[in-house]
């Protein structure tokens, strides 16, 4: 299996890093939810062949390589869980619970308005973009926008909570 080019690799990292927390194991391994053992092993081999950190040692800067190891370690974890029927079943149950929990706890509208008022106009704009992205199902952009907002207000409990819910 051919290692990815540096360009492919960096584009992938830029795309995946902001969304990493929001991706589930199937998305990380890039397999459909009903994938069988063979598909899962094949997908892992494919990804490992392309982006394993050993194949890109020092082709990347140390910080880029570090990011690659972080992403690869998550893909390995996804593989560990999905290849075992027992782990996979437990994971699906936990995921369902987690999703249910995050959609039932909703803040009151006036609470949101007052929390928003404390933020800078730019951060408010980013928050609105995140909510809009979330509605269209684009979790990755939602997370990215919230993170950018959070960068402007690192202490904001409101934004932190919103990000946590999104994850």
């Amino acid at each position: 299996m051919r290692p990815w080019s540096k360009r492919e690799l960096l584009a992938y990292l830029d795309r995946i890093m902001p969304a990493l927390e929001g991706l589930d194991h199937f998305e990380l391994l890039d397999v459909p939810p009903d994938a069988d053992d063979k598909t899962i092993q094949g997908a892992f081999h494919n990804m490992a062949g392309g982006l394993h950190p050993d194949r890109h040692r020092n082709v990347l800067s140390p910080s880029q390589h570090e990011r690659l190891i972080v992403v690869y370690a998550r893909i390995a974890e996804a593989y560990r869980v999905l290849r075992s029927p027992e782990h996979r079943e437990k994971y699906l149950i936990d995921e369902a619970k987690r999703r249910k929990k995050t959609t039932t706890t909703v803040r009151a509208p006036q609470e949101i308005a007052s929390a928003l008022a404390l933020l800078s106009p730019k951060a408010q704009q980013l928050y609105r973009r995140a909510i809009a992205a979330k509605r269209t199902g684009d979790t990755a952009s939602a997370v990215l926008n919230l993170r950018m907002a959070l960068a402007k207000h690192p202490q904001s409990g409101f934004l932190k909570e919103a990000l946590k819910k999104l994850r």
């Binding site: 540096k6 050993d54 194949r55 990347l60």
Partner: peptide, 21 residues
């Protein structure tokens, strides 16, 4: 040698994508 090989790639100064490809 394989791990060092990846090092050598990086040491060629400007690593072009053609080379990495």
């Amino acid at each position: 040698a394989m791990l060092a090989g990846a090092v050598h790639e990086g040491e060629r100064g400007e690593l072009t994508d053609e080379l990495a490809d």
